[in-house]
Design a protein around this nucleic acid. Structure first.
Lengths: 207, 207
DNA sequence: TCACGATGTGAACACTGCACACATAATTGC
DNA sequence: GCAATTATGTGTGCAGTGTTCACATCGTGA
């Protein structure tokens, strides 16, 4: 790998990486063509050889951020171990772990979280490889299969869970809460509220 | 009021109004200094006599949008009539009406809703005159006073309600839902979920 | 009446994304 | 192995943005 050469190795990936890095610290507003180009050590117009538009680059950064979120959720779900005599308990804990992972990602990486959901309905054009929505629904399916979630509630369940968890994430990220600000308590309370709304038994020590 | 004079009557208010109009159709991205200035029929630099910054103008537009939302919620709550032998029922219906008004505002004016919550923590600098948060909490206080909400849940109640309702609003506005898209059903399901989470009795015909 | 503060104008400046003509490298065909 | 072609990167320029500054104009109070 020679050091200074005319052709960059993989400018497409390099720009995406730089975009993620910029978005991580500065949010969607930090996704600027000239900034990313110079960060990679390339002229601004070179970007157009790999992305039709700045919007396309931003969209890809956003999509990658969503995938990172989905991966965190997946990892959190898989980290929950089976419970010997109570398979349903593990399923419940997985749903809770997914929700908690979602919120923790938002709080840990607020700018990236903002970037992930900055665009309106770009999902259709190019779906995320692991979709957060799918991860949630798989966990809910497991919940039904374990007999812990009423089938009648299955349809509206993801909406309720998603709304509450995504909503709380946004509230925490934007710091929309009045002074007595106890994020941890808010998270557990909201997750408990979701389980209540789903009419799922609340595990004693959820964590 | 002469028609074409050098000094504009109330440029501050005129710019705010133009900003709201622009945001209503184009969202936060439509809040552009030169655009608003020319809409009011004034040179770009005139704006700086009334706003320190474009950010200040945007912030005021955003704040006004939040106030409009709060007013809708308030109006919806006041539209719920008392129930002769059951004061608690009215209190419950008011909470539900508030949530429904919130979501309906978001769906009816998605761009304005986006504009309302585009900034991070501008609330502290200049609080909204009727705050949506306060409207919700007043309704919850009434719920406690009517003996319909357990005092132990009072603290976390607004968070759960706000997260779910705000979250669903964002989901609907951004159209983050997969194809089988039934907004109405989603709203009633989420509101019912909130009441479940608050352990409040569900009124038979809420509307 | 005159001076002064309040308000609006016009021309700059730095910045953005983007489009074009051109230069260079990598690759392909003979 | 050499030429032609494609892929990739550069430089310049354009329209647009928010912002600033010196200047012009209006309303008002001494």
């Amino acid at each position: 790998m020679t050091s200074a050469r005319y052709h960059h190795g993989d400018l497409h990936a390099a720009l995406l990486k730089a975009g993620l890095s910029a978005a991580r610290t500065g949010g969607p507003a930090a996704l600027q063509l000239r900034e990313l180009a110079s960060a990679v050590g390339v002229s601004p117009s070179a970007v157009y050889r790999h992305y039709a538009d700045m919007a396309h680059l931003s969209a890809e950064v956003s999509r990658t951020a969503r995938e990172a979120l989905a991966n965190r959720m997946l990892a959190a779900a898989e980290a929950v171990s089976e419970v010997p005599r109570d398979p349903g308990l593990a399923a419940i804990r997985r749903v809770e772990a997914i929700g908690r992972a979602y919120i923790e990602f938002a709080v840990a990486e607020p700018h990236l979280f903002d970037t992930a959901f900055m665009t309106a309905a770009t999902t259709a054009s190019c779906p995320d490889s692991p979709s957060a929505w799918d991860v949630l629904n798989d966990a809910l399916d497991a919940l039904v299969q374990a007999g812990e979630l009423d089938v009648a509630r299955r349809e509206t369940a993801p909406l309720i869970a998603w709304s509450a968890v995504h909503g709380l994430s946004g509230v925490l990220v934007r710091q929309m809460l009045p002074p007595p600000h106890q994020p941890d308590a808010a998270v557990t309370a909201t997750l408990a509220g979701v389980l209540d709304a789903l009419n799922v038994r609340r595990p004693p020590h959820a964590r």
